[in-house]
């Protein structure tokens, strides 16, 4: 189990009701972690999102190695 601090942005923070939470996960990769978050928060299930760790946006194959991640959707407003 890893303890991860998750920062949420935009609509994602609104759907979850907070812009930060601490989670415990066994996810090994960024892709696994994305699935874990979608299971934990069904409201995220269909949402487009990207995950960054150590200030770098990762592919889903990348190993989950940081204790803090940023999870954000695309914004469209202008």
């Amino acid at each position: 189990m890893k303890d991860i601090t998750v920062n949420y942005y935009g609509k994602l923070a609104e759907l979850i009701g907070t812009n930060q939470e601490l989670v415990q996960t066994t996810a090994e990769s960024i892709g696994d972690f994305s699935l874990f978050l979608r299971q934990r928060h069904p409201s995220l299930c269909d949402m487009t999102l990207q995950i960054a760790q150590n200030n770098h946006i990762e592919s889903s194959e990348a190993p989950l190695s940081s204790k803090e991640v940023d999870v954000f959707p695309p914004f469209s407003g202008g």
């Binding site: 935009g10 609509k11 269909d46 949402m47 487009t48 990207q50 946006i57 959707p73 695309p74 914004f75 469209s76 407003g77 202008g78």
Partner: peptide, 13 residues
Amino acid sequence: LFPKPPLPGEVPN
């Protein structure tokens, strides 16, 4: 950055 566009209505303007 965002290869896949969101579903309609997923992200409001």
